[in-house]
Design a protein around this nucleic acid. Structure first.
Length: 811
RNA sequence: GUCGGCGUGGCGGAAUAGGCAGACGCGCCAGACUUAGGAUCUGGUGCCCUCGGGCAUGGGAGUUCGAGUCUCCCCGCCGACACCA
């Protein structure tokens, strides 16, 4: 083996050199026509908000590590990157600094690119995507028009969520606890506005059912998505209103409790409310509705306060019993779910129960608990039970009761089975400048007219100001009649931009289409998607929706965009998530200067399980630094390892080596990077033992050196390249083949057998692997511990033997 | 409130088809080498102890030859959803 000797490991001497070589040779460039099996590896693209810190880097290190690993395993890897570049922070920062949002964004992108490069993170930059580029948003607009054509984009007047700080409307998903997702202290307001929506509810069933296809997604993300969609099966029942020609339609998931209805409730916004209210109740009802409208969403949705409501004076008729039921108005009933009206069953619904208690309304039991477990009337009994006080249905239980009543209701024409969702249509209009313009004009005579495809993109004006304040932008002519028209001045929610970027990467330079269907079908689905758990609902749900619509339009085959998802934890320091505002972020620049990019990468992987949050400790980076120094010295300066006695032999070294190949390969595959680092450290220690024991630097040693370098490469690529070169490796280590392990070499031929007496460890024996039970028993009974426990010649009452592991003697 | 996750040395964390608790590393202690340096190497490091052992994975019970791992109850922390009929 040819070894170039030099002074010790100085990462700064080698890192920028290899970064330049990788870039010049286009190492991470993906070949669309490669004969190798494809592997689409993707990290969630960032919003370029400024300097990156090591908390952000965790995501990119994982992605880079995995790309390099899969390349070595002979996959043709597509590992692209881009920028989710539209959005409010750019506008806010621009206002503060007096810059154009685009200038601010481009500067941040340039800075972040430098930081990624200095960490040795590689992408196929020829496919870089920036969502605020006209080359990109032209196709975002094109896709909007596709949705419009397919009836999936519509404009509607609706009560919408308005953030008073950002001066824009928000999607349902962007309202968190009744507050704006970006300002947790700012309650959203309700406004009635005409806005654009995407009909995601049309896909509710498929979005829910196809979660079943996502075998390789974390369970908690699948549960969160299923809960968000919130499908429920129930029955709609029409109750006639006394003295009116109208019916009051309600939705219930418990038709088996229909005999327990004792009153009815309308939401304050319900259109029927005016009509059912009697003159003597009018002023009270109006006052109540006024108050409910003024209340913030937070106060109204709070489950803590006592329920409020007033009687309307109106009456409804239970179609099953003919009973007269008083109609109330109360804000615990939501206009936005079901029909905005409910039948109240205080005996078996906790909310109705509380309301009934507060206002002295009757409570009736129609579901009997299994064994008289009912504790008086302190709460509603909501679990399953047997129907009672329900006429012909008495005695039915659970689903049988549901079905019998539902059938009866349908036969008599009182109502019908229905499915409801929690999911709402996606409100995408934003009253902001720095976003993708909605390609629509409003013509005085033709109404809403889509911008013709050959006129795309609708460019943002250079001037940074509200679009609705820029006459040269919004005054235009109608493409249909040539008459005066006004442009839509809202821009799209930035989550639209990020709902299809993974498709654009497959043909990022395409000038004729958002993406080339052939290339999209070649690369999709994304094989490995890595990002933060905070996107569990918004981004991942929207992207799934887009993928399905594009599938239906015949543009792409896959019905799900992301085959395997990994959500990594956040990095904390001083107990809090690293962030710019807290000033506790570790800058990659400082780390690279002090310890080197490789040590930083390894530490970030070693810090803990990647799916969990991890606390960054500055001193602990020393471990990975020392490890790399040790590897360097072992490989380039083995003469300096003192022979301090008997160490492991060549057979032991090879066994450890092949065990390590197996362990590291499995750990990389399953994202257990922390234990992969530990395994490599153990191998380095074993190599040191070998040399210290006077081991020769022959074929076994060379095998260990070449293998160690390649196992290390995905994690610490700079030092791996340098060592690879100096030990005479062919080509780049990045292009080298991943080592295979030999199961026979890796097998232990001698194992430690634990001897237990009554379940307590009493001895340990070195025995040949695969020892059979009689032989093991004989050995164990002869041991000192066994003789002491059993006395001379005593026989155990029982012996439990687990091959190669343990033998338990029960006296 | 519902659902999900978690709780292991001074610290980060290993170990689950039930089988040696504490791998690997940080820190700490002792020693070696030394042109004294935040370098490197060697050994030690859960607690108690009468040196035979005893006790330890948030607390308590249970199943088992054997439990960090399985079951039940309780405590604590984190996250999601939260009046969805």
């Amino acid at each position: 083996m040819r070894v170039t000797r030099r002074r010790g490991y100085v990462p700064q001497d080698i890192e920028s050199k290899w970064q330049r070589i990788w870039r010049d040779r286009g190492v991470m460039r993906a070949d669309d026509s490669s004969a190798r099996a494809k592997f689409y590896n993707l990290v969630m693209f960032p919003y370029p908000s400024g300097d990156l810190h090591m908390g952000h880097m965790r995501n990119y290190v994982i992605g880079d590590l995995y790309s390099r690993f899969q390349r070595m395993r002979n996959y043709e890897v597509l590992n692209p990157f881009g920028w989710d570049a539209f959005g409010l922070p750019a506008e806010n920062a621009a206002m503060k600094a007096g810059l154009h949002p685009e200038t601010w964004t481009r500067d941040n992108v340039a800075r972040a690119k430098e930081q990624l490069a200095m960490m040795g993170i590689l992408y196929d930059w020829s496919r870089e995507v920036t969502t605020c580029d006209p080359d990109y948003y032209r196709w975002t607009q094109w896709l909007f028009l596709l949705f419009y054509e397919r009836g999936l984009a519509y404009r509607a007047m609706a009560p919408v969520n308005w953030c008073p700080v950002d001066q824009t409307v928000l999607a349902n998903e962007q309202v968190v606890n009744g507050a704006c997702w970006r300002h947790p202290d700012v309650p959203v307001e309700k406004r009635d506005l005409e806005q654009w929506f995407l009909r995601i509810t049309e896909y509710a069933d498929r979005l829910l059912d196809d979660i079943g296809l996502l075998d390789h997604w974390p369970e908690r993300v699948r549960v969160m998505q299923a809960n968000w969609i919130g499908r429920s099966h129930g029955v709609e029942v029409d109750f006639s209103v006394v003295g009116l020609d109208e019916t009051m339609r309600i939705y219930t998931t418990r038709p088996d409790t229909l005999f327990g209805v004792t009153f009815m409730v309308l939401a304050p916004e319900h259109p029927l409310l005016e009509q059912v209210t009697t003159p003597e109740n009018r002023s009270a009802v109006r006052a109540y509705v006024e108050r409910a409208r003024r209340e913030t969403e937070i106060a109204r949705l709070s489950t803590e306060g006592a329920k409020t409501g007033v009687p309307t004076g109106g009456w409804a008729i239970n179609p099953l019993t003919g009973e007269r039921l008083p109609i109330w108005v109360a804000d615990y009933v939501l206009m936005t779910y079901g029909t905005g009206a409910i039948m109240a069953v205080p005996g078996h619904d906790q909310r109705d129960f509380e309301f009934a208690r507060r206002f002295g309304l009757p409570v009736r039991e129609v579901i009997a608990p299994p064994r008289g477990r009912r504790d008086g009337l302190s709460e509603a009994y909501t679990a399953a039970g047997v129907m009672v006080n329900s006429g012909r249905f008495d005695g039915l239980e659970g689903q049988a009761g549901f079905d019998a009543v539902a059938d009866f209701v349908e036969e008599r024409g009182y109502g019908r089975r229905a499915i409801r969702y929690r999911l709402r249509d996606w409100l995408i209009s934003r009253q902001r400048y720095w976003g993708c313009p909605i390609p629509i004009v409003h013509c005085e005579s033709c109404g809403v007219v889509p911008v013709p495809l050959d006129e795309l993109p609708v460019l943002l004006p250079k001037t940074y100001r509200r679009l609705s304040e820029l006459p040269e932008f919004y005054e235009t002519t109608c493409s249909r009649c040539g008459g005066k028209a006004r442009r839509e001045t809202d821009t799209m929610d930035t989550f639209i931009d990020s709902s299809w970027y993974f498709l654009r990467y497959t043909s990022a330079q395409d000038q004729d289409a958002p993406f080339d269907p052939g290339l999209a079908n070649h690369w999709m689905a994304v094989d490995q998607y890595t990002g933060g758990i905070e996107h569990a609902i918004l981004h991942l749900l929207y992207s799934r929706f887009f993928q399905k619509v594009l599938h239906d339009a015949g543009l792409v085959d896959a019905v799900e965009p992301f085959a395997r998802l990994f959500t990594q934890g956040m990095v904390t320091r001083g107990g809090q998530v690293m962030s710019k505002s807290l000033g506790n972020g570790v800058a990659p620049d400082d780390l690279v200067v002090r310890e080197g990019a490789d040590a930083g990468r390894i530490y970030e992987m070693f810090i803990g399980p990647p799916n969990e949050d991890a606390e960054w400790t500055d001193e602990a980076v020393a471990g990975p630094v020392r490890f790399l120094q040790k590897v360097w010295r072992l490989i380039l300066d083995p003469d300096t390892i003192a022979a301090t006695g008997t160490g492991a032999g060549a057979v032991d070294l090879r066994r450890k080596l092949h065990q390590t190949i197996r362990k590291v390969t499995e750990d990389y595959e399953s994202f257990r990077f922390n234990t992969a680092v530990a395994a490599l450290m153990e191998l380095a220690n074993a190599m040191q033992d070998y040399l210290a024991g006077g081991g020769e630097r022959g074929a076994e040693w060379s095998e260990a050196v070449g293998t160690m370098i390649r196992l290390l490469n995905p994690m610490a690529p700079h030092i791996a390249e340098e060592l690879w070169e100096r030990t005479g490796g062919q080509g780049l280590c990045a292009d080298a083949a991943w080592p295979d392990y030999d199961a026979i070499t890796a097998a232990d031929n001698e194992v430690t057998l634990v001897v237990q007496v009554a379940g307590k460890v009493r001895d340990r024996l070195r025995v040949p692997a695969g020892l059979d039970e009689p032989a093991a028993t004989e050995l164990a009974l002869a041991s000192e511990a066994a003789r002491r426990a059993l006395g001379n010649g005593g026989r155990p009452s029982r012996v439990v033997y687990v091959r190669d592991k343990l033998i338990n003697i029960v006296p």
